[in-house]
Design a binder for these strands. Structure first.
Lengths: 207, 207
DNA sequence: CAAATGAATGAATGATCATTCATTATGGAC
DNA sequence: GTCCATAATGAATGATCATTCATTCATTTG
């Protein structure tokens, strides 16, 4: 009685390595969102993926390595979309900033499942420096881009009164904090309120 | 060979319940900061407290209940200091806001150990709603007070242009995000930069 | 088609851990 | 001083879980 029978026994199939890895990573995200990082077992993950328990060993060697790849997946996915916006050359700087804010609260990238995974790993950062490392490089690059954007957008007067680097880190912190709000409050309205709050902060700097 | 002998065997002592509970909670905080929530075992905690493994059962019934009380401890501790500032009646509103910002980045309350615990629990919120509940009530009360403060401090012009509730939630999110920065970056300088960023946001609203 | 390859399985293993509870120690009460 | 209530101990228990690997199965190659 195979678990994944529908009516008739489904045949097991060999898939390309990359596809299996993605399948397992997606199952891991779902499980962490549902049960938390601490309570997620290998059996949970392989059940969710409708595969056998031994498969993780085959594709990731250990649970810890699967977790690391899962975090990397989410970090890369975010960074990729971010880079796309920045690389675009049919947008003015202000449009880019608007696009980033929209992106930061778009459901495909930022939803409660992914935020749950994100914050689950961040919560373990002090104990597992590897998690911090995975986030740090992207973060630095992102902050650098945002800083350049503010530099070109803000008036001389504003820049004389405020430190641009400080504005950048406040902006990043604001975004992180708003994400946390979304994770913590199940209402859908939070996402819109969060986007508005981010935009209010930015527009306050611009005029 | 008792673990906690120094030179001669130390006698075990019966302490008032409340003291033992605090001792265990403090040990739990240390362990979570050092090993992470997922990897912290009962043996870790009772070793740290230099007590026997059975003691948690005696004072908290289960590990889960000890964890819940630990989160509650940190939340209550923060709220208590916050209330003290707000209850003071020899401070103007602006002074109060300054005092809150100083408080939010004072090492006694906000340090990497306590932040590690804080975010470790937040990371599990989606899976364990009880953690969310413990934080939510305090958060609501705090936001309410901050909102009142902004209402009285901001000019009519600013209030006409911006929604005070949105400003409040941006302020809270900013603080949360800056705390996350402190947890993530081991440099001591981060704390001062964070305080400055928070203050810059507020002073930008005031003039 | 037969043989070879290697992807996938899942029962078995052994390690880790929370919890239990019979026993021991402690500090009042009298 | 001797009892007694109860705080504290820690070896033992049983449950959970990551990992292993001999076996099974699908696909490819010759």
């Amino acid at each position: 009685m195979p678990k994944h029978s529908q009516n008739t026994t489904r045949k097991r199939r060999a898939l390309p390595k990359a596809e299996r890895r993605n399948q397992l990573i997606k199952a891991t995200i779902k499980c962490i969102a549902k049960k938390g990082l601490a309570a997620t077992t290998m059996a949970d993950i392989t059940n969710e993926a409708e595969l056998s328990v031994g498969i993780v060993n085959l594709h990731f060697k250990t649970k810890e390595l699967l977790l690391i790849e899962t975090l990397r997946f989410i970090a890369d996915e975010y960074k990729e979309g971010f880079d796309q916006i920045f690389a675009s050359n049919n947008m003015q700087d202000l449009e880019k900033l608007k696009a980033i804010i929209d992106y930061d609260f778009s459901p495909r990238i930022i939803n409660r499942n992914k935020l749950a995974v994100w914050f689950a790993f961040l919560g373990e950062v002090k104990a597992r420096p590897i998690y911090q490392k995975i986030c740090a490089q992207h973060d630095d690059e992102i902050n650098h881009e945002i800083c350049k954007l503010f530099s070109s957008l803000l008036s001389e007067k504003t820049k004389r009164k405020n430190d641009v680097e400080l504005i950048t880190s406040a902006y990043s912190a604001l975004t992180d904090g708003l994400w946390l709000d979304i994770l913590l409050s199940p209402q859908r309205s939070t996402v819109n309120a969060a986007r508005n709050a981010a935009w209010q902060y930015v527009s306050g700097l611009l005029d």
